[in-house]
């Protein structure tokens, strides 16, 4: 009986498990072999580390890495700040019960695909975009070229703005349930003991959402570090972010470049798995902590 039970549950997991193993880990392993130069189809069946060495030695790689870290870090910071604000405002207005349409409105960016979000930002922030036109209207600039380059810029502001807009509701979505569990009892208690609204936010609300916030920002960081679509649309040719740089290498058609591309993606994967594991630990921790 108990043997059958255990086997039955193992059977339940099996389809999902097999799909993940073949399609995901299979792909990763396949890529790993190729990153070591293993292409038996063209007679390359020795494993070499040289592609990693080559990839790391490229000036383009270092520039890409630098750009990548900068964009991911700034995006995470802005998305987190905006997300916290959003979650706190939602909490303060208790939108869920009273104004559900407003909650939906603020979650709008969650639904919009990244490519679309990126293009919206082009229309808002490019040198002939809405902001430039407004700046002209109030007399700050006299020609499009005077408007600062925000999208398709070497610094990566266009990507940062897109990610901040797109991921802030995501951050808020992870934080809001934690806040929603806090009843008015906490606020009453804090006030009785002398807490002003700002004290309440800084000593109670922010620490309470910290584990969830860490999870959310790690996810945003990992995503912005490895995403392809937005930098492909909003970046410049050089330096490109690592995923775009790797994609360019891969599609150049040369087997050596392909191995290098896969080597770069493997490095990224190791980093993301590490961050992912940390994020998951924080997530479980915030999940397990005893709330009233």
């Amino acid at each position: 009986m108990s043997m059958w039970r255990r086997n039955k549950y193992a059977l339940f997991v099996l389809p999902a498990f097999l799909l993940t193993i073949t399609l995901f880990f299979g792909g990763l392993a396949d890529g790993l072999l190729k990153s070591f130069g293993y292409f038996p189809a063209i007679g390359q069946d020795t494993l070499r580390l040289s592609f990693y060495q080559q990839a790391l030695a490229e000036r383009a790689f270092q520039d890409s890495l630098f750009l990548n870290l900068r964009v991911a870090l700034l995006s995470t910071i802005f998305a987190s700040i905006l997300g916290i604000t959003l979650a706190l405002v939602l909490y303060a207005f208790q939108l869920r019960s009273k104004r559900p349409w407003l909650l939906r409105l603020l979650q709008l960016p969650l639904t919009i695909p990244h490519l679309a979000a990126g293009y919206f930002m082009v229309l808002v922030f490019s040198q002939s975009g809405l902001m430039a036109r407004l700046a002209y209207a109030v007399g700050w600039i006299d020609a499009p070229a005077e408007f600062p380059v925000i999208v398709n810029d070497a610094f990566g502001w266009g990507m940062v703005v897109t990610y901040a807009w797109k991921e802030a509701p995501f951050v808020a979505l992870l934080l809001y349930p934690v806040l929603a569990r806090i009843g008015s009892g906490w606020y009453d208690t804090a006030r009785i003991y002398g807490a002003r609204p700002w004290n309440y936010i800084s000593t109670i609300l922010l620490p309470a959402i910290r584990p969830a916030l860490l999870t959310a920002s790690l996810i945003v960081f990992v995503y912005t570090l490895t995403a392809f679509e937005v930098p492909y649309l909003l970046g410049v040719t050089y330096p490109a972010t690592l995923p775009v740089y790797a994609y360019q290498l891969y599609t150049s058609g040369n087997f050596e470049d392909r191995s290098q591309a896969l080597a770069i993606f493997w490095l990224l994967t190791v980093v993301t798995l590490l961050f992912g594991w940390i994020a998951y630990r924080f997530y479980r921790k915030s999940y397990d902590r005893g709330w009233e």
Binding site: G185, W186, D188, Y193, A208, G290, E292
Partner: peptide, 14 residues
Amino acid sequence: HFAMMFQQPHLFPH
């Protein structure tokens, strides 16, 4: 500068 005990302890979990 009063103090209050509620039905629930309302301790801050963090």
